[in-house]
Design a protein around this nucleic acid. Structure first.
Lengths: 387, 387
DNA sequence: TTGAATGCTCAAGTGAATTGAGTTAATGCT
DNA sequence: AGCATTAACTCAATTCACTTGAGCATTCAA
């Protein structure tokens, strides 16, 4: 889902670029590190790491954090990522509005905004995004050339599939090269992804999956999505549509139905139709008041979630499964503590140090922040060559 | 599941090694290629490719195939992989026997053998494997240092999981470092995997998935396994147990049950218990005679498979799903043509050029050949750096 | 106090890529 | 037929980024 595949062959310059990314990524996930420790963890010489660090420091991407004595020998100068060294743009396009967020290199939100769409026509949307970017950069006092790239999140699935035609699809966007469109308009490298994948990446940059390389993320959006991270990279599938978990059939007392029919905002909205339109805040209020209808829905939702966990664990064997998205944290927490974790699963291991199911970031902006995280993840990860 | 993680940092030597693998892999999947074409597809200079080719030719891994004129300009000298340039060892350890196969670089089977296990104790098994290797290499006239590595296939899942304790587990093998054990005994790089993953890789080297990078493989072994290939690499999961598809619940008229209960050799054996022990050949004979009980089982199996396809497609969005393993080809073919392909799936695309479901290699040795294919795949794929 | 361990720098050396000029061998145009 | 064009390839020089080895600084432990 990147603009153009990176070249496969390796040469001196590409080595350096890859090593730079590895150094940055290692420091980011460890918090702070010294040259020698970095050299050891990469199989590079200290001298090589020294050169790379000098370069990164000159570029403003790293800052000195003082020396730390860790035992015998000369204490090591520690470095950490300079939050102000670079910024990532997150763009979420929805049928009604665009959301934009700016993250700094540490993954902290610098600014975020929502802009109602006047037209859904791609050119007009892009123009609106350009304007929004200019405003936000100016307001935050960020130099445009400090922006590393943009992540774009759109409702999937991409291309004409058996799941197309949902209400969440963007009309007129199915057959265009969205990544190229944004990349040319913004003059930035663009990563395109669906909401669940983006949210999954957000957890890796600064959330519950910090430092993890294999995990799954169940995302509550319009429907239900799944973000899969394998070896630190998103599993996108052949056409970028992996993770459409909402359609998989689950077993209920009323017969088989799609997971989404029991576990999604649409399903809770339908069940609690008499309570009007429920946004995240309203659901949180109902949860706080221990609303009986909501609790009844939660029972069913947990039963469905249990089956989803079983399928995900047995197919992927992740280190953990994270629950997040447009749901109040209290509801996610309830699910995490009330789901029956399946016994007949490869996820059921005695030596597991992480919980099998845990809560991630919740809220309306999760996917937008995730979009920006795609960019950060790329900045921190050496690009793998793919044939 | 390799012995030791490759170093992350890149330097000149590692660049060369990675470029060598890329060149080999590209030639292997294209059949034959010239220097200039290779250089273009990698983003390397012709000179660099020239040097690499000279080295590979000197090592006996490539052979000249004469010049081909493809238009204007000087015709290009084509190279292809020398089948006799290297060999891969495949080892499948089962509760009753070890299977061993040798593949040449082109993926062709050179030799294969079965040896009944006298003892399941790891040290004794390894000793038996060592002896078997010596015999087979000698009989085939292969110099030992032409062997690139060994792939080892064992019944999963690995480690103590909620699925442990199956009859297919190897007692006494759960808590040892199997890869190290074989690697030290054989003096070879060893890749460890379960049967489904290995079989999936076999299809990539020379079978139905030749040249594909994203596909899924449903494997009929003792139970049912799933091999997932993402970006040309197996998805192993955090603990190497991804793809345990047999346990996922599916919907049947008799209620929910594990997929394996409807779609596996065990299930057909149970349904046709009155016909005695059924090996692959016996099942093939029943299929040829259009046995009514077998056809009834197939109906149920296809219904189950349809659900599995839906889950796999929606979670992974593969280019294709391949069916293979210890089942007669005729039964696999029947399934491929009789399964109801789910409509509500991201796999249901109009622009798909590959069939959504197709048949792969069938037979008793599939996993053993797959084990050797793991080695070939590594020889042909630049190793990705993983943090 | 002394020696071992550890972090780091400087300067020289090395491996593998790129660059640019030049050769060879096809096709296409006049 | 002759010549320009295109493409594949080689040789030699250069460049890039990493490694190596010598040497210094700082800390801990005996």
């Amino acid at each position: 889902m990147t603009i153009s595949k990176p070249p496969i062959g390796s040469n001196a310059e590409r080595s350096r670029s890859s090593n730079r990314q590895a150094v940055l990524g290692c420091i980011q996930s460890a918090g702070e590190m010294g040259r020698a420790a970095l050299a050891r963890s990469f199989g590079l010489s200290t001298q090589a790491v020294s050169n790379i660090i000098a370069e990164l420091e000159a570029d403003g991407l790293l800052i000195e954090r003082g020396v730390r004595a860790l035992g015998r020998g000369q204490p090591a100068m520690q470095y950490s990522v300079n939050p102000k060294g670079g910024y990532a743009l997150g763009i979420e396009v929805r049928p009604d509005a665009v959301f934009m967020a700016i993250l700094d290199l540490s993954g902290k939100e610098v600014s975020s905004q929502r802009s109602v769409l006047k037209s859904l026509e791609p050119r007009k949307v892009v123009a609106q995004v350009q304007k929004l970017r200019a405003e936000m950069l100016q307001k935050s006092g960020i130099e445009p050339d400090r922006v590393l790239g943009a992540g774009v999140v759109m409702p999937g699935p991409f291309g004409q599939t058996g799941l197309s035609g949902n209400s969440s699809d963007l009309p007129g966007w199915q057959s265009i090269d969205v990544a190229r469109l944004f990349s040319e308009a913004l003059g930035l490298a663009v990563e395109l992804s669906n909401d669940a994948n983006a949210a999954a990446m957000a957890e890796r940059i600064g959330g519950a999956a910090h430092g993890l390389s294999n995990y799954a993320y169940i995302y509550f959006g319009a429907g239900l999505g799944l973000g899969l991270v394998n070896q630190g990279q998103l599993v996108a599938g052949a056409y970028g549509n992996a993770g459409e978990i909402g359609q998989i059939p689950i077993f209920t007392p009323d017969g088989p139905m799609p997971l989404e029919a029991r576990l999604s905002r649409i399903s809770v909205q339908r069940r609690l139709a008499n309570k009007g339109a429920l946004d995240v805040a309203a659901l949180g209020a109902l949860m706080a008041s221990e609303d009986a209808d909501l609790l009844a829905w939660l029972d069913d939702a947990c039963a469905a979630l249990s089956q989803a966990v079983m399928i995900i664990e047995n197919l992927f064997d992740p280190e953990t499964i994270i629950l997040g998205g447009a749901m109040p944290g209290s509801i996610l927490d309830f699910m995490v503590s009330n789901v029956d974790l399946p016994v007949l699963s490869v996820g059921n291991r005695e030596d597991k140090t992480l919980p099998r199911l845990q809560r991630g970031a919740a809220g309306r902006m999760t996917a937008t922040l995730g979009a920006a995280s795609l960019v950060l993840n790329r900045a921190f990860t050496p690009q793998a060559a793919v044939l």
